[in-house]
Amino acid sequence: MASEPVLSIRNLVKRFGGLVAVNDVSLDVFPGEVVALLGDNGAGKSTLIKCVSGVHSPTGGHIIFEGEEVHFSRPIEARDHGIETIYQDLALANNLDVPGNVFLGREVEKSYLGGLLRPLDNKFMLAQTASALASLHAEIPSLEVPIESLSGGQRQAVAIARAVYWQARLMIMDEPTNNLGVPEQHKVLDLIRALRDRGVPVILISHTLPEVFAVSDRLVVMHRGRKVTEKKVGDTNSEEIVQYMVGALDDTRTPAPVA
């Protein structure tokens, strides 16, 4: 594992009025690893992630991305740095086809008559989309149909292909297998592994422990806004993780109480 973390979160605090949603959390993410972020509802996972992706501004602490401290006030600023977030609702336009979504907002144009006529270069965008999907080993029957006719897993593949094509340097995925059938879940986990193999680190938020153990390198558990433990996947098991998730175990408390 490379020594320099891609993302370093230091003592991050986020308050909403009197509520402390994220309390003094520190976390490192290294190149080519999948870090799972676990915790019960309201543990602060999503708030922490939204601070990194530019949706929320942290109340305190530091976010260091690729060696530089960053302050994002809007999601687009995080994206410009290469931090791609795949939300549960995917943020795709269902009426556009696959290349239309992959290149949305960054369309490639041809130029005729000295720039007077600038039609879209659909052929180029289609070819690039096909190769981005191929590099993820994701196959979609027809790329030139509105993506509303695709399955949930295929749409995840489109969202991931978009991030990969635009050189994401950190991928955040919030419950990517929600609302998917079992074969589709496996496909999405394959996509996550394909991302890791390309050296793109992934922060994965999930409630599904078997899937977390299947795909992650490290597990971070949050409880009531605090990070209660951080374990390598080989050093723990789902029973122990559940104890952390419900607050029965807590590494920040000494001595740990007996469950």
Partner: peptide, 24 residues
């Protein structure tokens, strides 16, 4: 049919939030 402007018109009608997040 053929320009970025047209593509964005469809995208805004299809999912305005997605268009905003994509930087349209």
């Amino acid at each position: 049919r053929r320009t970025k402007f047209g593509r964005h018109t469809y995208a805004i009608g299809g999912n305005r939030e997605a268009a905003i997040r994509a930087g349209v």
